[in-house]
Design a protein around this nucleic acid. Sequence first.
DNA 1: CCATAAGCGAGACGGTACGTCGGGTCTTGAG
DNA 2: CTCAAGACCCGACGTACCGTCTCGCTTATGG
Lengths: 182, 182, 182, 182
Amino acid sequence: MRNEQARQDILDAALALAAADLDGLTVDAIAARAGVGKQTIYRWWPSKWAVVLDALVERAATDVSPGTGTPERRLATFLATSFASLETSTGPVLRALMARAQFDAEFAEVFRGRLVEPRRAVLRELLAEGSGRRGADLDALVDMLFGAMWYRLLVGHGALDRAFARRLARLAVASSPPEPMG
Amino acid sequence: MRNEQARQDILDAALALAAADLDGLTVDAIAARAGVGKQTIYRWWPSKWAVVLDALVERAATDVSPGTGTPERRLATFLATSFASLETSTGPVLRALMARAQFDAEFAEVFRGRLVEPRRAVLRELLAEGSGRRGADLDALVDMLFGAMWYRLLVGHGALDRAFARRLARLAVASSPPEPMG
Amino acid sequence: MRNEQARQDILDAALALAAADLDGLTVDAIAARAGVGKQTIYRWWPSKWAVVLDALVERAATDVSPGTGTPERRLATFLATSFASLETSTGPVLRALMARAQFDAEFAEVFRGRLVEPRRAVLRELLAEGSGRRGADLDALVDMLFGAMWYRLLVGHGALDRAFARRLARLAVASSPPEPMG
Amino acid sequence: MRNEQARQDILDAALALAAADLDGLTVDAIAARAGVGKQTIYRWWPSKWAVVLDALVERAATDVSPGTGTPERRLATFLATSFASLETSTGPVLRALMARAQFDAEFAEVFRGRLVEPRRAVLRELLAEGSGRRGADLDALVDMLFGAMWYRLLVGHGALDRAFARRLARLAVASSPPEPMG
DNA sequence: CCATAAGCGAGACGGTACGTCGGGTCTTGAG
DNA sequence: CTCAAGACCCGACGTACCGTCTCGCTTATGG
C-alpha cells in the first residue's frame, strides 16, 4: 500500500534538484529534500534516473498542438514547440537521461517506452496526415527530424531555434514524393 | 620526455577494456592492464574518456570512400559504411563517449572537435557535390542524416542496416530542389 | 487481551533462530517465523533481546541440584552442571545477551534481575551452607566463581569442563577460613 | 607505504569519540574527526572496534607495579590499580569491546591476544611469585580474579573499589595451600 | 662519466555517492 | 478491534571510483 504523498514529494524533489544542479542530484539529496528515507526511493524505483524520468513524464506538459496551415507550416510549428520545450531545465535533464540510457539497458527500455516512443508516435501521426508516405519511410523521416533534434541537443554544435525548425520542415516536406493523383 | 610505449599500452588497454565491458572501464583497470601507474594516465589525459576517444580516433579506420554512381547511390554507400563501422565494439564505445559528453563540457568540446565535426565535414562535402544546396540547408541535411544515425544508435529503436541507409539516401536526395537550370 | 498463542510462537521463533544463527536473529525474521506482525513483538517486548531473554528464562531448565557429599563435592557438581548447560545453544545466546546488556541499560537491568541475580542467589545459598562466611565474603566468592565462568564463556580462552569445575570448587573451599570452634 | 600521521589521527579520533559517546562511535565519525577517508580506515582495520582496540592497547598505560609488601598486599594493590583504570572512559570501552567479541570471532581472537592474554600473563606472574602453585591452579586463580573483575564490570551488580580488591586478594591468598616445607 | 631532474610503477590518500541492512514506528485492510 | 503485513524514516554500513599525492627506482641527457 504505497504512500502517494511520499511519491509526489519524491518526484517534486527530484525535479527541483535536477533543474537546479544535475551534479547535485543524489539519491541522498532527493530523499532529504522529500523528507523520505532512501529506502523508500529504492523500494519503488531502480535508480534516481528512473525517478527523474517518472517526474518528467508525469509533470511535463506534452500537449503539442501544431496549429493550422499547410502541412509544412504545421510541421514547423510542431518542431519549434518541441525545441522550445528544451530551453528550460528540460533540455539538460533529457540529455542526462539519454546519457544514462547508454549504460543501463533496463533504464534504456523504460526511457524508450515512456518517453521516446510516445513522442515519435505524435510526430509520425503528424507526418502521415495528408501524405502518401507509407510505414518505413515515415519512420525514417521521424528519425531524421527527431534525430536532428537530439543530435543538436546532445552535441551542441547548432542552435535549436525557430529557423532550424522551419528548415527541417521544408526539407522534410520536400522529400515527399508528389501526391499520387486520382 | 614522454614514454611512447606507455602511451600505446594505455590506448590498447583502454580499447580492450572498453570492448570487453564498458562498466569495467575504470582508470585503475586501464592502468593495471597497461602496466602503468595511474598518474601516468592523468599526466597526459584529463579523464579515462579522453583516453578512449584518443584510442578510437587513432585506431579507427576512417576511410570512407563512397564509391561511384549516382549521388543517391554514393550517399547510400557512405551511410551504409558508416553504419557498418558501428557493428563492432565501436558502437557501444561511441555511445559511452556521447553519454560522457553530456556531463563534461570540456570533454564535449574535444569530442565534437576530434570526432563529430570531422565526420560531419566528410558528409557535408559529399552532399555538396553536384547539388545546388547552400550552407544552412547542407548543415540541416547533415544533421538529419547523422542525427538519424545517432538517434538509432543511442535509443536502439531501429536497426542501422543497409536498408535504412538506402532509405535515408533516397529521402535526402528527394528533399533536394531540382537543380536550377543555366 | 493478549494472544497467548502468539506469545509462545514468538518465543519459539526467537529461540529457534538464536540457536540456528545469531546473526540471522532479526525482528523481521522472528516475526516472519512466528507468523506474527512486527508490531505484535514491539507491543510486548522492548527489543528482540528481551524476547530472547524471556524465552531463555521460561524454557531453560534451571533446576540445579548439587546432590550430596562434602561441601566441595556439592559445589563442584553445581558448577559442572552449570557449565554443562552452556554446551548447547544456550552458551552463545547468553554471550549475546551479555553483549547486548553492555549497550542497553534498560535491558541490562532486566538481564540482571531475571537471569543473573537468581543464579547468584542459588550459588550464594550453596556456599553459605555449613560455612562461617559472612555477607561480603560470600558475594566475593560468588563473583569469583561465576566470574570465572562468564570470563571463560566470553573470552573463550579455556574450557568449561568438569575438571575446571572441580578445580574452582577446591580453590573456593580452600579459601574458607577454618570454621571457628565453639 | 602507510601514512603514520593518518594512523595516529585515526587512533586519536577513535579514542576521543569512544570516550565522549560510545553510540556516536561511527566509522564515518572517526573518519571525519581524523580528517581521513573512510577507506583509509577500512584499508588497515577490519572494523571500528579493531581501531578502538589498537588505540586502547597503544595508548593505555599498562604499567601496573604492585609495589611491595606481603603477597596479599601486593595482589590487592595490583587489583585495585586494575580496577581504578576502569574508572575513566576505559571501562565502558572495554565493555563495548568485550561485547563486540561475542559477535565477531575474528575480532575476538585479536581481542584475546592483544588485550586479555597480556594482562593475564602479568597477574599469573604475580600469583606465581613465592607460591607453590602449579599451572592449572594458577590459571584458575587468574580466571577467578579477572573473572570477578569482568563480571562486575559487565553486569554492574557491585562496585569495583579498593575494598573489593582487598577482599579478593585475601580470598585468593587464603586458597593457597601452605607452602611446602624444605 | 657522472648527477640531476624528469618520468615512471605502485599504491595510499581524502572524498563522494552508492545500494543494503536492520531498528523501531505507523498505516491499512481482512477477519 | 485485533493483528498480519508491510511501508515508512532513519542512520550506519562497507564498497567502488575518482583524481591527487607521495614514494623510490629508472633513465636519459647535459655539464
